[in-house]
């Protein structure tokens, strides 16, 4: 199957549906972002108790007088209607002002930014590991369909899918870190120690993706174009790599976009287990201290990365598969 567009149309004409689809997808992402901002903002009024009182207590005022509370309410614009409060919050958030952390009194964005590299290292390594494992597992499973490597991979992936990241993390803690003293629990987030937590984070996703890739590879192997390729004398490896994999890649790509959401949530839990100094462990400390602006910032960051990730996946799919451009859907 050819991936390039038909040569009869001029390059400009054939680019038009692509551009339209790209712009449409971009607008949709922006609207979704606006939507989640409402939800994230709503977390604060949702919290029990009076925010001004909470903030004063966080600042160390044990028994705030009504006058102090009233003054702070005016200062924080808490006496204004909720839609106005939202608009003001959004205006500040767009400019990168996610207000101050109750605990440290420093900007939330700065605090989160400081811990972002560690989280990106962990999640990025986990993503690469999952893709690698899924690719190997899926290809082997499809190549040795119904023979022992396939059966082994199916068994392993069934176990892997059912092993949530925090269970994998605890097992690794017990059997690798404590038993053999490999790796560290109290790491400073250096890259030497990233492999073990990243692997724990990768397992369930890798297993899920391997199952998916195997299934779509098998489907591609049953299609007519692979039959033609084999009939023309292509080796099994070439058929798998050159013909089946590119066609199986598209559903796989969509699954990756969805899986990244789980990766973001899972990395927070893995950080808590391995005391990895990233955003996740910071957020759990913030929750314990009832430091809500940090929680808001975390959700915003998670939502932003998830939307960006699925946007990228969709854009790649649009570039790869011309069939999706004319209002089609992945």
């Amino acid at each position: 199957m050819s991936i390039s567009t038909l040569p009869t149309r001029s390059p400009l004409m054939s680019a038009l549906p692509l551009v339209r689809a790209l712009v449409g997808r971009l607008l949709q992402a922006l609207l979704t972002l606006l939507g989640i901002s409402v939800i994230i903002w709503a977390l604060l009024p949702l919290a029990p108790g009076d925010p001004a009182q909470r903030l004063l207590q966080a600042r160390g005022v044990q028994d705030p007088t009504p006058l102090q509370v009233a003054a702070l309410r005016t200062e924080l614009a808490l006496d204004r209607p909720l839609p106005v409060q939202y608009a003001e919050w959004l205006g500040r958030a767009v400019r990168g002002d996610l207000s101050l952390s109750y605990q440290t009194g420093r900007p939330v964005l700065e605090e989160l930014g400081k811990r972002l590299p560690a989280t990106l290292l962990l999640a990025g390594t986990a993503l690469v590991l999952s893709l690698l494992i899924a690719l190997i597992g899926g290809l082997l499973g499809a190549a040795y369909h119904e023979r022992w490597p396939d059966q082994l991979i199916r068994l392993l992936s069934q176990v892997g899918v059912s092993l949530p990241a925090f269970l994998a993390g605890l097992l690794a803690l017990r059997y690798i870190v404590v038993e053999f003293n490999i790796g560290r629990v109290l790491s400073g987030g250096q890259w030497q120690y990233v492999l073990l937590p990243a692997l724990c984070l990768a397992i369930s996703r890798a297993a899920d993706w391997a199952q998916l890739l195997r299934a779509s590879l098998l489907e591609a192997l049953g299609a007519n174009y692979t039959l033609v390729a084999s009939a023309r004398g292509a080796t099994k490896l070439r058929v798998l790599w050159r013909y089946a994999l590119p066609n199986a890649a598209l559903p796989f790509l969509t699954a990756i976009g969805v899986g990244i959401g789980g990766l973001i949530g899972g990395s927070a839990i893995i950080e808590a287990i391995f005391t990895w100094p990233g955003i996740g462990s910071y957020v759990f400390a913030a929750i314990a201290a009832r430091d809500f602006p940090v929680v808001q910032g975390f959700v915003l960051l998670a939502g932003l990365s998830y939307i960006t990730a699925s946007l990228c996946v969709d854009l790649v799919a649009l570039l790869v598969d011309p069939r999706l451009r004319d209002g089609g859907h992945a």
């Binding site: 939800i39 994230i40 959401g261 949530g265 929680v295 959700v299 939502g303 998830y306 699925s310």
Partner: peptide
């Protein structure tokens, strides 16, 4: 909009708040 936020992240945030 709800599906654009990873479920577990939203759950952590809501129960955290």
């Amino acid at each position: 909009i709800l599906m654009a936020l990873p479920s577990i992240v939203l759950a952590i945030a809501i129960v955290g708040v």
